Computed example of a mutant assay.
Amino acid sequence: MDRIRHRIGAVKYLNTKPLIEGLAQENGVDLVLDLPSRLADRLLAHTIDVGLLPIVDFLAHPEFGLIPGISISCAGPVLSVQLFSRVPLEKVLWIDADVGSHTSIALCQILIQKTLGLLPQMRPFPLEADPNHSKADAVLLIGDRALSASLPDFPFSFDLGWEWQKLTGLPMVFAVWATRPKVDVQALECLLKKAKQRGLANLPRIAHQASQELNLDGAICRKYLEHIIRYDLGPKEVLSVSEFARLAQNLNLLPQRINTSHASPFG
């Protein structure tokens, strides 16, 4: 049996699959799949060496390192982060928020506060609960559950990726690869960039397989992976992360001392 050299934490969502293509078959790699909101705790506990963290969790921990050049982001509608509302947005007082990602909850609060000057109450909504049965004014869904949601009793919907671009003119970065201290970052960077290259070269196959595994429409999966989700972390994405951090700090959603290693590749 090969000795485990790299412990990698990721999530089961469709948008992650191109970034972990082939990792489970790599010698010496232990790939762990969990909720995005739990991966920061795994890094802090040193049970993984690198994790695909929600950007808000990465920013909140200055001790984490960064794998450069890779993200889960969008430049416009994202489809998989959606706010569904029973009432017009200005009348929303209570939101049931998917517990899967801290970033989407913070993004929702930022957008509503910046556009309307409001801060609705956010309550955790269990993953196993049916959003059709929510009693809240609105529900915030992420990932595959958002992609397949219709929610006929919620006539208003808002794509948070699109709302962020309208507000800032920037792409929205949802997640990055973050490392715990004292790991071989160069080896992990090489491993993860090769996985990304494999994934991007095989998007049609990944989309087809994922549609069967996740019970999602195959055409939607392919469009989502090929034309909606972006996987780079370049200057515009870095600028967006900094703007997200500033706005989150203004609402006390992040501490004043944050992780700034995302900016170092670009000065």
Results as ranks from 00 to 15, higher is better:
M1F: 12
M1D: 13
I4F: 12
R5F: 11
I8Q: 07
N27C: 09
G28C: 09
L39N: 01
D41P: 04
R42N: 11
T47I: 00
I48C: 09
D49I: 08
V50G: 02
V50R: 00
L52E: 04
I55Q: 15
V56I: 12
A60R: 13
A60H: 09
F64L: 15
G69L: 05
S71E: 02
S71I: 08
C74I: 03
G76A: 05
S80Y: 08
E90R: 12
I95K: 00
A97E: 02
V99W: 12
V99Q: 15
S101E: 04
T103Y: 15
Q109K: 10
Q109N: 05
I110D: 03
L111K: 15
K114D: 10
P120V: 05
Q121I: 01
R123Y: 09
P124Q: 11
F125I: 04
L127Q: 05
D130A: 13
N132M: 05
V139L: 12
L140Y: 12
I142T: 15
D144M: 07
A149W: 14
P155S: 09
F158L: 05
W162P: 02
P171W: 12
M172R: 12
F174D: 03
A178N: 06
L188F: 03
E189Y: 03
Q197K: 11
Q197I: 02
A210N: 01
A210D: 03
S211Q: 12
D217R: 11
D217M: 12
K223G: 10
K223M: 11
L225Y: 11
D232Q: 12
V238H: 03
L239M: 14
S240K: 13
R246I: 04
R246M: 07
L251D: 00
P255C: 04
P255F: 02
P255K: 11
I258M: 06
N259F: 05
P265C: 04
F266R: 14
G267Y: 08
